Amino acid sequence: MNITQPSFEVPADMRDFAEKSVEQARTALIALMQNARRATESLQAQTKTIELPASVAYVHGLELFEQNLAAAFEVAQKLVRASSLQDALQIQSEYVHAQFATLQSQTRELASAAQPAEAA
């Protein structure tokens, strides 16, 4: 008995719509992050807290969030362009592995950044 795998084909117009939607979401979130950064910088300048450990940690956290957000949008763009279910699963698997390693690295980085603050 020969079992064939069903075809996974996304119509071109649906793929284009999804790609545009991902790009619009990326643009909106980048604008949101820029506004959050400007608001943070303005607040820090007004309150003169720019060098306090909590402020430094917050800004660093925003940077890490931006990196993770960029990675998520990159994988979303790849998924939109996937030509088969197998490709989509491979893209997702690679993303999960890479993001797990990134999160481990970021955790170590944040932990080492917090140590001087605890010692003070």
Rank of each mutant, 00 (worst) to 15 (best):
A82N: 13
V56P: 00
H60C: 00
L103K: 07
V96H: 10
A120Y: 07
Q24L: 15
N68G: 08
V59M: 13
L43A: 07
D87Q: 13
T107K: 14
E51F: 10
K48D: 05
I30P: 00
P53D: 00
L110F: 03
M1D: 08
V59K: 02
D87L: 00
A114D: 05
V59Q: 05
P53H: 03
D87G: 06
L43W: 11
L85F: 14
A88R: 02
G61T: 11
M1N: 09
Q34G: 12
E94L: 04
D13G: 01
D87M: 09
Q104V: 10
T107F: 15
L62E: 14
A54W: 09
Y58Q: 05
R15D: 02
Q44K: 07
G61K: 13
A28G: 05
V22W: 00
E74T: 04
L103Y: 07
A76D: 04
S84G: 12
E94W: 01
T49C: 05
L79T: 06
K78W: 09
G61R: 12
S93H: 13
L43G: 10
V22M: 00
A98V: 01
Q104G: 04
F100Q: 10
A71E: 04
E118P: 02
S112G: 09
N35A: 04
E109Q: 11
A45C: 10
S7E: 10
D13A: 09
F8E: 04
T27A: 11
A25W: 12
